[in-house]
Design a protein around this nucleic acid. Structure first.
Length: 349
DNA sequence: AAGGTCATCAACCGCTGGGTC
DNA sequence: CGACCCAGCGGTTGATGACCT
C-alpha cells in the first residue's frame, strides 16, 4: 500500500501534471483510512453518488473527486463483492476477455459484484500468467507458436507491434484484443456472406450501422454490444449484480440485439476455450455449460468455409465460421431466443 | 535471522468522450 | 463551433506481505 502520508510530490517516478485535482495543495493521497471511508460512505448514503468534483468538500474529505469516486466504486459500494474470484467467474472473465480485450469495465459489467479494477488486477496477476503457462497467448487467446516469448511491449499508440490491423482504424479501442478485431471483421464477413438472405442480413446490417455510428462512452464498436444498466458507467450496482447469475443475460434485455449477440459469443467462446487445440472443428460441439442460445447447425465443408442453416435458410461464411454462425443466430429476429428456438424446431421438423 | 525477490492490489495518472454553454 | 467541465476508463505505480536464498 502506498504511504498515507505521501504527498502529491510522490516518488518522482511520474511527472506531476497540472490536472486540477492532482495539483491542489492539501489534497491527501494514498490509502484511505477507516475514518475517511466512513465519511465518504455516510455522505453518499445520504446524498447519493455523483458530483464527484465537489463531493470531497461537501463530505468533509481532503481528497480529490477522482479519488473519492474510485474508493466508492472499487471498495465501499455495498454491492462490491470481496474475496476470491470463483472458478466460474474466472471462466467468464476469460471468455469475455477473448471477446472484448482489455475493456475491463465492460467485462466487470457482466460479472456481478466485481469491479473493473479487480478484474484488471486479477487478469494481470493470475489469468495472463495462467494462459501463458498453458501455452496460450493471453492477448490473442490463441496457442503460442513458440515458447513464451518476452512480454511484448506496447507501442506508443497502445497497440502491440504485430497487432496493427487495418480494421482497427474504425475501432476506437486503443488496445483492441485481436479477438475483438476478428469479431468486428466477422460482422463484415457475415454481412457479405448473407447478403440477400432477408431478415437475417437486414437486421444484422442495421445493427452494425447503429453501433458503428453510435460509438459512445469510449467503447465504440463494442460498447454497443452491452447493456449499460444505468448509463455508460458500468460501475453501478446494476441488475447484473442483483441477479447474480450470468445466464440471465439477455433475458431481461429483450430489445438489445447486441446483448444477445454478446451472450452467444460468450458461449461460443466457451467452446473455443474448450477446444483451444482443435482448430478445425466446424462441427457443432456439445452445448457449453452456460449456453443461453440454441446453436445454428453448421456443416463442415472445407477448411476455412462453413455453411450454416437456420430457419430454413442457408448461408455460407468463409473464415471465422463459428463466430459468424453465432452472430447470425443472435440476429434471427426481434425475440431472439424464441425465434432461434423456433428456427431450430422448424429445421428439425 | 537477514536480505533479496516476487506477487498482490489499492490507488494514482493521463487521456478520452459526452454534455453544456 | 470551440472551450470548458466532468465522469469514466485503462495503464501503471508502489507499498506491503509472502516467499526464497
Amino acid at each position: 500500500m502506498r504511504n498515507p502520508s505521501s504527498s502529491s510530490s510522490g516518488t518522482g517516478t511520474k511527472t506531476m501534471t497540472t490536472t486540477p485535482c492532482c495539483s491542489k495543495v492539501g489534497i491527501k493521497k494514498g490509502p484511505w483510512t477507516p475514518e475517511e471511508d466512513e465519511l465518504l460512505s455516510n455522505y453518499i448514503n445520504r446524498e447519493g453518488e455523483g458530483r464527484w468534483r465537489t463531493l470531497p468538500k461537501r463530505a468533509g474529505l481532503l481528497r480529490c473527486g477522482k479519488s473519492c469516486r474510485l474508493r466508492w466504486m472499487n471498495y465501499l459500494r455495498p454491492c462490491v463483492k470481496r474475496g476470491r474470484i470463483a472458478p466460474d467467474e474466472e471462466d467468464l472473465i476469460l471468455r469475455l476477455h477473448r471477446l472484448l480485450g482489455n475493456r475491463w469495465s465492460l467485462i466487470a459489467g457482466r460479472i456481478p459484484g466485481r469491479t473493473d479494477n479487480e478484474i484488471k488486477n486479477y487478469w494481470n496477476t493470475h489469468l495472463s500468467k495462467k494462459l501463458i503457462s498453458q501455452g496460450i497467448d493471453p492477448r490473442t487467446h490463441k496457442p503460442l507458436i513458440n515458447p513464451p516469448p518476452p512480454l511484448p511491449t506496447p507501442t506508443s499508440s497502445g497497440l502491440y507491434e504485430h497487432e496493427h490491423n487495418p480494421v482497427s482504424n474504425s475501432n476506437p479501442n486503443p488496445n483492441p484484443n485481436p479477438a475483438s478485431l476478428e469479431l468486428e471483421k466477422s460482422y463484415q464477413v457475415i454481412t457479405a456472406a448473407t447478403n440477400g438472405i432477408g431478415n437475417l442480413t437486414n437486421n444484422l446490417q442495421n445493427d452494425v450501422q447503429v453501433v458503428d455510428n453510435g460509438g459512445g462512452g469510449g467503447g465504440g464498436f463494442m460498447m454497443g454490444l452491452l447493456p449499460s444498466n444505468g448509463g455508460g458507467g458500468g460501475h453501478s450496482c446494476n441488475q447484473v449484480a442483483e441477479e447474480s447469475k450470468y445466464y440471465y443475460i439477455g433475458n431481461c434485455i429483450e430489445d438489445n440485439t447486441f446483448s444477445s449477440l454478446l451472450d452467444s459469443l460468450i458461449n461460443d467462446n466457451y467452446m473455443f476455450a474448450n477446444n483451444n487445440h482443435h482448430h478445425h472443428h466446424h462441427q457443432q460441439q456439445q452445448p457449453p455449460q452456460l449456453q443461453t442460445l440454441p446453436p445454428v447447425v453448421l456443416q463442415a465443408q472445407e477448411p476455412g468455409m462453413v455453411v450454416g442453416t437456420s430457419g430454413g435458410q442457408t448461408f455460407t461464411a468463409i473464415w471465422e465460421g463459428e463466430m459468424v454462425s453465432t452472430m447470425a443466430a443472435a440476429n434471427l429476429g426481434g425475440d431472439h431466443q424464441q425465434q432461434q428456438q423456433s428456427a431450430l424446431d422448424n429445421q428439425r421438423a
